[in-house]
Each structure stands twice: as structure tokens, then as C-alpha cells.
Design a protein around this nucleic acid. Structure first.
Lengths: 154, 154
DNA sequence: GTATTTCCCACTAATTCAGTTGGTATTTAG
DNA sequence: CTAAATACCAACTGAATTAGTGGGAAATAC
């Protein structure tokens, strides 16, 4: 498992796409502007996202990118895997010799943790993120009506 | 949030320490041998772990490292933060101007996700990992007696 | 046919990773 | 007291990754 700034850029860009792609495709130029990521770097990221069919490109004027599937069918793990290659970890080649056993045990423990992190991220979709934020915003708004006088909690 | 191979090395080394540190300190040379990590790189990692008081060094012959606290009081997030610096993300400085709002929204979404990942990793301790593995091993052993014939599930 | 956009590839500066080298400080074993 | 073992410290290094540049080619709307 690996979660780098590269993965963060990809998730951020996909979020932008999910939020702004309701009506018509979104150009990389717009995402670049919105998120402050260089156009060429976005191109690299989207090349990877496209091969995994997480996005769909439309060329020509008025073109841009759509999500490749429903936001609910795209998990955070999908996105990160697409751009970060997801190198599988040294599994000591199954049950083979691995310098004594102690090493193999910690490798197993790490592998377990790693797949747990993966499952966690695989359980969160783009759609979830967007909806969660809307819900929270609603709560905050409702709350701020009630407690508008002491909104200075800092 | 950031999870690199550096963090993986640190967690692996701490796991080794948790497993082998029951009676007496563990030397970096042993961990290096067990886990196949260079001694000097371990020194760098443990310098960071030491400043965060996750480990305690004992010099001289017969010396080595102890866990700085109980394995149950050390979370995976603690370890990764210690070696990976845990750069806080562009928060657009609270609610300030952030190129239009669309950008700030995705930043907020990312921040939420990021802290969710953090909380997830903060909820898993070294002790948890060790115990979980022991439990699973027990299950597997019991299971393998029952289903030993079809253990080839690929 | 031209402007807009994706798509593609080769190159690069900066950073991080992982390790090397060569020490110094401290403590134990003998 | 001496020598060995160990943590501790800092500068340097090759390799990989990150993030970005530059120069295009291909598709498509107008």
C-alpha cells in the first residue's frame, strides 16, 4: 500500500471531475486552474486513469473528461492504484525460506495491515465523499442557525 | 496523509521490536539481519522514532532498543508520522480565498478523507497487530485440520 | 480549415529513498 | 583499565520518484 502526493493529486482531480462534470465534460485546463496542478502533470495522471477506465476523454473543442463510471462505482483505492502502480510487497514468495521466520512473520503482519488499509479505501467511493460533505454542510448550516451567537468557538 | 515504503520499513522494524523485545533490548544489527534493512537506514529511522519517544536506546554491549511505551499505546499512525513528517495539507488557510471555491471544496473533501485515514491508522496499535496475527494463526490451524484436503483455494 | 482539446513522448530540475562511509560517545565484559 | 559492542551523529551518494516543460500528433466542433 502506498499513498503519496501523486495519489492525492489524482483523488483531488477526480473529485473536481465528480463535482463539475454534471453537465458536460471538464477540460484538464479547468482542473489545472481549479486545483493548481500543472496541465502536463494532469495529462500524465489522466493517461493512467484512462487506461483503468476511471475517466473517459472526449477530444476536440467542447471536449474534456467524463468519469468513466458512476461516482459510486469509483473507490479511492481504484484511483490511487491507477496512478501509484500498487507494488505488491515482498511476500517472501509464499511460504519460502525467509531468513529464519521472524522476518516472514513481520512481513505477514505488514501484508495484513496493508490489505486492511486497502479495503478501507476500497470502501469509500467518490460519491460517498461528495455526499458526506453535503450532509455535513447541511448540519453545519442548521447548527449555525441555532448557535449563531457563539460561532466564535476558536 | 502519506504512506511510503519508508513508513513501511518503520512499521516493520517496530513490529520486529515488539515481537523480539520481550526479554532484553534488541540491537539494530538484529533487526537489520531479520528484516533485510540496511543498518544505517535503520539508524536514521530510529533517530526519528527516538525523538518521538516511540523507542528507547540503551548503549554499550548488551544494549539495543526497547519500545518507548507499551505496544498497545503505539499506533501505526504514530510510527508513520514519526518517520514521514506528516505534512499537513493545503488548507487554503481556513476559509480564505482559494481560487473560486471549487478548489476549496475539493481541498475540504480531501482533508476529511485524509483525517479519516489517519484515524483509521491511529486506531490500530502494534499490540493489536501482534494479537490479531496470533488469533488468525490459531483459526487457520484449527481450520486446516478440518479442511486440509482443499487448501488449494487460489 | 482552423481552433480546441485530448493524446503522446522525450527531457529535466528537485526531492525523496535507501544506503555508504567514517566517525564519536557510552557502557559492559574481561 | 582496556577493548569491544553498541547507540548516536553527520556528510555524502546513486537511484527512483515527483512534478513540471516543451514540442508535437490526432480528433472534432465550428
Amino acid at each position: 500500500m502506498r499513498l503519496s502526493t501523486k495519489g492525492r493529486y489524482a483523488v483531488t482531480a477526480m473529485l473536481d471531475l465528480a463535482l463539475n462534470g454534471k453537465n458536460g465534460p471538464v477540460t484538464l485546463a479547468e482542473i489545472s486552474e481549479n486545483q493548481g496542478i500543472s496541465l502536463s502533470y494532469l495529462e500524465q495522471l489522466f493517461a493512467a486513469l484512462r487506461t483503468k477506465e476511471l475517466v473517459r476523454g472526449v477530444r476536440g473543442p467542447g471536449g474534456g473528461y467524463y468519469l468513466g463510471k458512476s461516482a459510486d462505482d469509483i473507490s479511492i483505492a481504484n484511483i490511487i492504484c491507477a496512478v501509484d502502480e500498487w507494488v505488491e510487497f515482498t511476500r517472501c514468495g509464499g511460504r519460502q525460506n525467509c531468513s529464519g521466520g521472524a522476518r516472514c512473520l513481520t512481513h505477514t503482519l505488514w501484508d495484513d495491515l496493508s490489505s486492511e488499509i486497502f479495503n478501507f479505501l476500497a470502501g469509500i467511493s467518490l460519491g460517498d465523499l461528495v455526499r458526506r460533505n453535503l450532509n455535513k454542510k447541511e448540519e453545519e448550516d442548521t447548527l449555525s442557525v441555532v448557535t449563531s451567537s457563539d460561532s466564535q468557538a476558536a
